[in-house]
Structures are given as structure tokens and as C-alpha cells.
Nucleic acid binder design. Sequence first.
DNA 1: ATAATATTGTGGAAATAATCACAAACTCGC
DNA 2: GCGAGTTTGTGATTATTTCCACAATATTAT
Lengths: 209, 209
Amino acid sequence: MVDRVVPDVIVSRLPVYLRALQFMQMQAVTTTSSQDLGSKVNISAAQIRKDLSQFGEFGKQGTGYNVEALIAHLEKILQVEKVWDVAVIGMGDMGHALTRYGGFLNRGFRITDCFDNDPAKIGSQAGQYIIKDVADIGKGDCLRGKMVMLCVPAAAAQKIANKLVECGVKAILNYAPVHLSVPADVRVQYIDPVIGLQRMAYYLHEKNE
Amino acid sequence: MVDRVVPDVIVSRLPVYLRALQFMQMQAVTTTSSQDLGSKVNISAAQIRKDLSQFGEFGKQGTGYNVEALIAHLEKILQVEKVWDVAVIGMGDMGHALTRYGGFLNRGFRITDCFDNDPAKIGSQAGQYIIKDVADIGKGDCLRGKMVMLCVPAAAAQKIANKLVECGVKAILNYAPVHLSVPADVRVQYIDPVIGLQRMAYYLHEKNE
DNA sequence: ATAATATTGTGGAAATAATCACAAACTCGC
DNA sequence: GCGAGTTTGTGATTATTTCCACAATATTAT
């Protein structure tokens, strides 16, 4: 394996592999194969082997992969062996739901700060967090190096994204249903349930009602 | 344009175009071009034109596209000119957040039913909905032809998915952080914030703390 | 009218991604 | 220790996707 840029499409599959492997681990499975893992994530065995070969040789012929070891490798590759601090911006229903979600910590993330622009919310408690003022984002470099989950209304998203970029945020998980324009060195991942539903609606044959 | 199967990758971009166009419409923009739209969704102009050419000729040389007309075409193509009934299964924080989200209706969807397995929740009111018993999903064909947003814990997701498949559900928006095994004619879209965060963590250079 | 400018739709080229297929290496049972 | 059965990692092939470039057509300015 020579040192070259790994295609995005491969990187994007690694978390899926990791999730499946951790699920196996929870069920006390110690060993798997590209075949087995592939059947569990609906990806061909060859594809999985090719993907992993970008980063090293983690398997053993005849046996397959040690689940725990492969998890460790993937966590290292994805840089989630340690825990990243993440801020939530916008404490509506979605922001609140995220703060109450228990699934972050054991997968490499922890929410450290919550922000909103509503004076009624600022200073109030949301679970273990005290909601801070969005206006304070610019002050200090409280967000530098952090990742952000952006849960504000569509109309406010771009403006806040600009501010985040200024503050040195390099990764935004965007729940607002709009495209964000950011510099090339800032990553954005989009979560919009309607996009998901529309992608499926195309394939449905009968309409309801 | 001849009648052929449209690649998934193209279909998956159409909702993104549609969302951007509706955003333009909201701002009273009447006309756009592949160039302009492309800059707003970070996709090349040529790509957009090629994608649209799969379905017909919607633009005018020299002018570009009429926003309203292109929206109408895309809605037709995606089958979201009318409104699909969607059920929410699992009324935890995420399920509740979805029922309170106002962004579905004008994009082709409406929540009609909510289910949970917690006796304390069944029968109670959640906004305008009365929470039904998950055990009743099998009874009647209340879900036939519907789409489902699945918001149950990971451990329960596959079991419920199986039940949904039996009931004739053909589209599942899965919020549970597990892969679902379903027949080939059932579509699944995944929403897992951690997958999104991990995909970005790979590219980050400095670790926090 | 004409020239300058803008934009589409698309054939073909280039780039990227997925799949195939197999030598090499390991395990297991006897 | 040997043969049958597994499984990896990868070079080569095939398939898919993206990009380029341009003729055709429309708009705008003068």
C-alpha cells in the first residue's frame, strides 16, 4: 500500500463498516470475514477488501478479520479512537433530541456546548448543559477545532455557518434543509429527512389514498 | 430521451436540486441556469444538465430554466406533487421531534400515524397524534403503501423492520444506527449523525484538547 | 439587422469505481 | 502431514460516472 489520497467514496463507507463491527462485538462475535461483513452491510466482499487494502492488511487468509482488531484499525483511520468535542447550535426539538441522545460517546464524540439565539432559552438548563448565546460564538475561540451540529432554521443556517467558518470550525453536520456554501477546507454533511423520503418516493409504484 | 433506467446516483441528486429551486422560489427568483443552480448546490453545471436530460428538456438556450416549471417537473419525476402518508415508529425524542417538524407538508409528505411499544405512551397524545401500539402494526393494512420513519432503539430496529416489510411498507427512513436487512424491493435511507461526524473526522487535522 | 453574449443538450473522452478471478496463505479434520 | 476448504489482497477488467467541448439556439445591445 503506497501513500495516496483515499477516495471520498471509500472513506464514506468506513463508518458503516465500523458500526457493523461494533454491533458484532456487542454480540460477542470475535471473528468475521469480508463475506460476512459484506452481507451485513449489503456491500460486496470484494469491495470491502479493496476498501480496507487502502489502509493496510488487516486480515488473515483462511480466517478473516479479528473484530476487535479491525475496529481498532478503523477507529484509528477515522480518528475516532479519542473523543471529539462537538457543539450543538440551535436548541429546538432537534437540538434537544441530540443532547439527550446517548449514542455519541462510545463512537468518538461528545457534546460540550449548546447555543441558541432565543433570550428565553439563553442561560437556561437543557439536561446537563447551560444554553449559551449564539452571539458569543465569535468571542474567544471556544469552537476552534470543534465540530458543530447545526440545528437552526433554514433561514438562519448560512449566516451562522459563515460565523462558524470564521471561528475555525472545519466540520458541520447540517440539519437545516439548505445547502451551505463554505470554503473547500470545511466539511459539511447533510441530514434532511425530506431528502431521504424524496429519494425513496421516486421508486414507489402505487400512491397512497 | 429514450426510456431507460435512471442511475440511482442521479435520482439521489434530484431532491437536492428541488430543494435549492424551492429556496430560490421563496426568494422570488423566477429564472436560473445550470451554472447558477450548480453554484448553489456545489455541483458542476454540466452534471446538472446531464442529470436533467435523463428526463426531458426543461431549459431554453440562452435563458436557462424557469424555476417554477422546473420545480413542477422535478416534483412530478420524484412523485412528490401529491402528499405521501408517513408513519413514525418509536416516539422517543427523535420521533417527537419529527412530529413537531413543520417542513414535511410542502415537500410532499405528511405524518399520519405514530407508534410506540411503551404502555405508558400508548393511547396518549403527542401533539395532534394519538400514539398507537406497535403491536397493532400487523393488524389490518394500516401501513400498506405508506412510508415509515423508524426511530426505535438499534436493538429493536431489525425486528420491527421485518414486520413493516410483511405489512407491505416499501420505504423506510431509518434513524436507528444499524443496517437493516430487507428485500430488494424495499428502499431504506439511513440517518445516523455519528456516521456523518465520523465521515468528517477522517479529514480533520488537529485533534481537540 | 448584426454582433456579442449566454445557455442548453449531448456525443465522446477521461476519470473513477466496482467487480472478477486467482495465487498465496491459513485452518481443520483425520 | 496432507488434502479439502476458506479467505485475503490485488492486478486486470469491466462498468459507471463525471467532465469536456461544441453546435444550436436564444437574448441583448447598438
